[in-house]
C-alpha cells in the first residue's frame, strides 16, 4: 500500500481543492476550486507539482495528521499558520520530506484565512467531472463531496524524490491597496450616486463570508430601478447588490446563475486576496479599465512565474538553520506572509 495521510484533527473546514471544475457551469455546476489560487500554485510549485493540482485547503484552523505507508514531500503556503513536524517547529513556504510515522500539526491562522497543504504527486482521489475540488453544497468532489473528518485516510499518488524548495520571505505574496474592479455587467442598474458610493466607501467583510461569497457591510448602494433582473450567468468575483443595498462578492462556490444586478467584478489577479480576507477586514474598491485589467492579468501571471523562479533549494542542516532564523523574523512580525492591508 502506498503512502497515506491520516487525518487526526480535521480543522474547521478542510477540503480538497484544485484550480476548479470548469466546463459545467452551463449545467448548474459551480466551479469551486481554491479560494486563493495564488497560494495553491505556490504550494504546488514548492513540491514540484503542476500549479493547479489539488491540495488541502485549510480554513482558519489547521489540522493534525500522520504519514503512513511511505515517505512524502509536503509544503504549506497561504495564510500564516504555525507548522510543527514531530513536535519541532517548521514553517510555511518551504518543502519538507517526511518519513512514515511522522506527524504534522498545523495551528490556527495568525494572518490571512486559508492555507494550502500540497503533497508531491498529489492525492489519489478519483476526480468528479474532471476535478478534485470539493463543492460541499452539492456534495461533489473531494472526499465524498465533504470536508475532511478525523480518521479520513487520504491516499497519495507518490512522487519521485525531488528538491526541497523554499520561497524566500522577501518574495512571499503581500496584498496592498484597494481591490481592483471592472464595472459591469449591470452597473447601469444603479444610480450614479450608488456607483460613486461603491467606489469611495470603506467596506467591512461581514460574518456572512464563506466559499460561496462575502457580504460587505458599509454604505448602501442605490439601485436605479428595483433589484430584480432576469437571471444570468455569474463569474468568480462578481459583486451583486440585493435589495438590502450591500455588496456581496460571489466566489468559488457561487451559484451558477442569479437574479440580482451585478455592479462590478473583482479582477482575477485580486481574487486571491478575497480568499485571505477575514470577517472584520476593511477594504476599498477601485475601478480599472478593461485594458488595465488585462494588463494586471499579465502582470499577475509574470509575478507568479517570478516567484516560482525565485524558489531556492534547501540543502542539508545549514540551509535549515538559516531558515530557522528567518522563521524567527516571521514570528516577530517583520514580514507577515499574507498581510491583507486593504486600505
Amino acid at each position: 500500500m502506498g503512502a497515506h495521510l491520516v487525518i487526526e484533527r480535521p480543522g474547521l473546514f478542510s477540503t480538497l481543492q484544485d484550480a476548479g471544475r470548469f466546463g459545467y457551469q452551463r449545467f448548474g455546476i459551480s466551479a469551486s476550486g481554491a479560494m486563493d489560487p495564488f497560494a495553491l500554485a505556490l504550494a504546488n510549485a514548492l513540491v514540484g507539482n503542476p500549479r493547479g493540482m489539488a491540495a488541502v485547503e485549510l480554513t482558519m484552523l489547521g489540522l493534525s495528521a500522520t504519514v503512513e505507508g511511505g515517505p512524502l514531500r509536503l509544503a504549506l503556503a497561504g495564510a500564516d499558520m504555525a507548522l510543527t513536524i514531530d513536535g519541532r517547529p517548521a514553517e510555511g513556504w518551504r518543502a519538507y520530506a517526511l518519513q512514515p510515522g511522522a506527524r504534522i500539526e498545523i495551528g490556527p491562522a495568525r494572518a490571512g484565512m486559508r492555507a494550502y497543504l500540497a503533497i508531491a504527486g498529489g492525492f489519489a482521489v478519483p476526480p468528479t467531472l474532471g476535478s478534485l475540488s470539493t463543492h460541499s453544497r452539492s456534495g461533489i468532489g473531494g472526499l465524498e463531496g465533504r470536508a475532511l473528518r478525523a480518521g479520513d485516510r487520504l491516499a497519495l499518488n507518490g512522487a519521485p524524490a525531488g528538491p526541497l524548495l523554499a520561497l524566500p520571505p522577501s518574495h512571499r505574496p503581500a496584498a496592498r491597496g484597494p481591490f481592483r474592479v471592472l464595472l459591469g455587467p449591470q452597473d447601469d442598474h444603479f444610480t450614479p450616486e450608488g456607483v460613486a458610493t461603491f467606489l469611495s466607501s470603506d467596506y467591512r467583510v461581514s460574518d456572512k463570508a464563506d466559499r460561496m461569497g462575502a457580504q460587505l457591510d458599509g454604505p448602501q448602494i442605490a439601485h436605479r430601478d428595483g433589484f430584480n433582473i432576469v437571471s444570468d450567468g455569474i463569474v468568480n468575483g462578481a459583486i451583486q447588490v440585493p435589495g438590502h443595498g450591500r455588496p456581496v462578492v460571489l466566489l468559488a462556490d457561487r451559484q451558477t446563475t442569479g437574479g440580482y444586478p451585478k455592479i462590478a467584478t473583482v479582477i482575477g489577479p485580486d481574487l486571491w486576496r478575497l480568499g485571505q480576507a477575514r470577517p472584520g477586514d476593511v477594504l476599498r474598491l477601485s475601478a480599472v479599465t478593461a485594458e488595465e485589467a488585462e494588463a494586471a492579468s499579465r502582470a499577475h501571471e509574470a509575478e507568479l512565474a517570478a516567484l516560482i523562479a525565485a524558489m531556492v533549494e534547501e540543502a542539508g542542516p545549514a540551509g535549515l538553520s538559516s531558515e530557522r532564523l528567518l522563521s524567527h523574523n516571521l514570528v516577530g512580525g517583520v514580514c507577515s506572509a499574507l498581510d491583507t492591508d486593504h486600505a
Partner: peptide, 22 residues
C-alpha cells in the same frame, strides 16, 4: 474560450485573457 453559460436572455462567455484578448 473556457466555457459558455447560456441563460434566459444572455450568453456569458468565460475566457483566458492571456490567450484570447477581449
Amino acid at each position: 474560450v473556457r466555457e459558455l453559460v447560456p441563460t434566459y436572455r444572455s450568453l456569458l462567455v468565460m475566457f483566458d485573457p492571456l490567450v484570447l484578448a477581449k
